[in-house]
């Protein structure tokens, strides 16, 4: 199989639940050892690690907040110590914004959301990209959002954060290409995760997200595995000449 990730090690931020969990498991299924970061849910993180181990790969979980640089330092050095060189970084950790209009948004909320998505992404790139330059091939994947295309009202902090995160990606792709590092963006629409469920409850009053299957693209709400499969594609041999690209995984949009 040419698309194996055998011998590679990955770091997935926000890897305990939702999309990050599916990415961690998907990378492990393709042959990578996987370190995940989580901020709060230790039980969920341990469960993801178990799933990685069931696939015969090394799995590790590190608690910390990606917007805190010294916590990122501890997590990444522990990960490199436990797994060896990290050649895949998936910046997935994220938080939603609160649904206020621009004029009503608390400045602190903007700082907080940008802290996780943008500074968190930069922290991990700053710490892991230099050692990635020495590997045969490096991959940095940003999990962005369809929000960067729609830029809808009542989502300014999130829209701003994801847009800035994508700007890091497009820039980093050009800077690191001579080092064999690919940088790409996967931008999901609505996905069945805890965050997605909260979103449709808050914005559309939908209690059970699966009620939206019928009105969704291809008659189903997007699953975390759809996103994970795209991440694995980018990191694989099939994606080896692809960098600086963004792929929306949203069933074509609404």
């Amino acid at each position: 199989m040419t698309n194996t990730l055998d011998g590679r090690a990955a770091f997935v931020s926000g890897g305990s639940r939702g999309i990050g969990r599916a990415i961690a498991i998907g990378l492990a299924a393709a042959g990578a050892d996987v370190a995940i970061n989580y901020s709060r849910d230790t039980a969920a993180a341990e469960d993801t690690v178990k799933e990685i181990e069931k696939l015969g790969q090394i799995g590790k979980a590190y608690q910390g907040n990606v917007d805190n640089f010294s916590e990122c330092e501890s997590m990444t050095s522990a990960a490199v110590g436990d797994l060896g060189e990290i050649s895949i970084l998936v910046n997935n950790a994220g938080i939603a914004s609160r649904g206020s209009s621009v004029t009503d948004t608390d400045p602190n909320e903007i700082r907080k959301v940008i802290g996780v998505h943008v500074f968190g992404t930069h922290n991990l790139c700053h710490l892991l990209v230099p050692q990635m330059r020495g590997t045969d091939r490096g991959d940095v994947i940003m999990i962005s959002s369809g929000a960067t295309a729609s830029l809808s009202g009542r989502g300014a902090p999130y829209n701003m954060a994801k847009s800035a995160q994508e700007a890091i990606a497009f820039t980093l792709a050009k800077e690191e290409r001579p080092h064999g590092i690919r940088v790409n963006i996967v931008a999901p629409g609505l996905v069945e995760t805890d965050m997605g469920k909260r979103l449709v409850r808050a914005t559309r009053g939908v209690e059970d997200i699966r009620e939206l299957d019928e009105s969704s693209p291809f008659s189903r709400v997007c699953q975390p595995e759809d996103i994970a499969d795209t991440v694995t594609f980018f990191c694989s041999q099939d994606g080896s000449y692809v960098t600086g690209q963004r792929l929306y995984v949203n069933g074509g949009g609404f």
Binding site: R177, R182, D226, Q245, Y248
Partner: peptide, 23 residues
């Protein structure tokens, strides 16, 4: 890229363009 797009791995992907140009 073509094989990926036609596969089950891309079953939620349509209406997209992948540029394969090494950036």
């Amino acid at each position: 890229a073509v094989a990926f797009l036609c596969s089950a791995r891309a079953s939620y992907i349509t209406n997209q363009r992948i540029t394969v140009a090494g950036g």
